[in-house]
Nucleic acid binder design. Structure first.
Length: 311
DNA sequence: ATTACACATCCGCTTACATCA
DNA sequence: TTTGATGTAAGCGGATGTGTA
């Protein structure tokens, strides 16, 4: 049937939640799924919800507010709105979708205000939106399937703005031959589907992060073991090639980044193997090293010619 | 200025139904 | 033909912002 959502909700999600509603501070969410982007803007929660921000707790997104983009756009400007079939009209309903428009295409939902929509379907109090398809006293909920064209138009409108102001909603409903309440519900469900998809994407991303971190941890543990072993065999220590990422002073057991990266801030602090961490090399008063370049044991004539295991 | 109320809209959860394999 | 899975329109309840008396 209508599988428009599938493609649109794919992994290339670029969610847009315009801050239309005064108390829903949605902002466009541009999710970068690349793990490398985590560190850059991981603290920005792009989607905030007054109730729960569960969907965006790990958004690596940029806040790009676009407050004027949706408020005054006219749904009637959508070109192919013209000629949209109205599924309340049985004759026009039987278009390209066999089975979509069944004789059951009556809806028992109530449009309009909350107080009104909570009333029984038979009251017909919805105002100008309620039409002949609210026909009988049948209280059973009949389900309406939106036509392809209707769904396409709604989808197109959703791409423009994921929320509607009342004016847009009314205009869209009129164009599609639906009740404003139906348009409203469609957008609510659409947002829910988007959020669900986003959650799935987030979970997948976290899963990959976890796997990467596990692998990184495994690798570092191995490297630490290697360094410890080297400490106990100085002769071999002098002959081997340096470890891939870390260098360690055998005398003080501090591990630090290679000299090439010492210009960067000491975020990756020197780690005292098996003991409490100590300040980085920059704190010269607390350390006798001038630089890791000077203590590089693999440098020719390095300072560790006389290595001795600490006792 | 503050309060109370109605209303509108949102979200989360759920249900009921349509469709398909 | 039946049936289970899936998708989705719609109902419901709670939360929150806004307007008004």
């Amino acid at each position: 049937m209508m599988m428009l959502d599938k493609e649109d909700l794919g992994l290339s999600l670029s969610l847009s939640f315009p801050p239309h509603h005064p108390h829903h501070h949605h902002a466009p969410l541009h999710l970068n799924l690349m793990p490398s982007s985590v560190s850059s803007s991981s603290s920005s929660a792009a989607v905030t919800n007054h109730k729960s921000s569960s969907s965006s707790w790990m958004n690596h997104a940029a806040h790009i507010l676009n407050p004027s983009s949706d408020l005054n756009s006219d749904p009637t400007a959508i070109p192919f709105l013209r000629g949209i079939d109205v599924n309340r009209l049985p004759a026009a309903d039987c278009d390209e979708e066999p089975g979509v428009s069944s004789p059951n295409s009556t809806v028992s939902s109530i449009s309009g205000k909350r107080s009104e929509r909570d009333q029984p379907a038979t009251t017909g109090s919805g105002g100008e939106d309620l039409d002949a398809d609210e026909e009988d006293g049948d209280t059973s909920r009949k389900k309406l399937r939106l036509s392809k064209d209707q769904s396409a138009v709604l989808e197109d409108s959703f791409k423009e703005h994921s929320t509607l102001n009342p004016k847009q909603k009314t205009a869209l409903a009129k164009q599609l031959g639906l009740r404003p309440r139906q348009v409203e519900v469609w957008f609510q469900n659409r947002r829910a589907r988007t959020k669900l998809k986003q959650t799935e994407v987030d979970c997948e991303f976290l899963k990959r992060c976890c796997e990467n971190l596990t692998e990184e941890n495994r690798r570092l543990q191995k490297e630490v073991q290697e360094l410890r072993a080297l400490k106990l065999s100085p002769q071999f220590y002098m002959q081997m090639t340096p470890p891939t990422t870390l260098t360690m002073c055998p005398s003080c057991e501090r591990v630090a980044v290679p000299p090439s990266s010492t210009s960067s801030p000491p975020v990756v602090a020197a780690t005292r193997v098996g003991s409490s961490p100590l300040p980085m090399m920059g704190t010269a008063a607390a350390h006798h090293h001038r630089s890791m370049a000077a203590i590089n044991p693999w440098a020719v004539g390095g300072p560790f010619n006389v290595l001795r295991p600490r006792s």
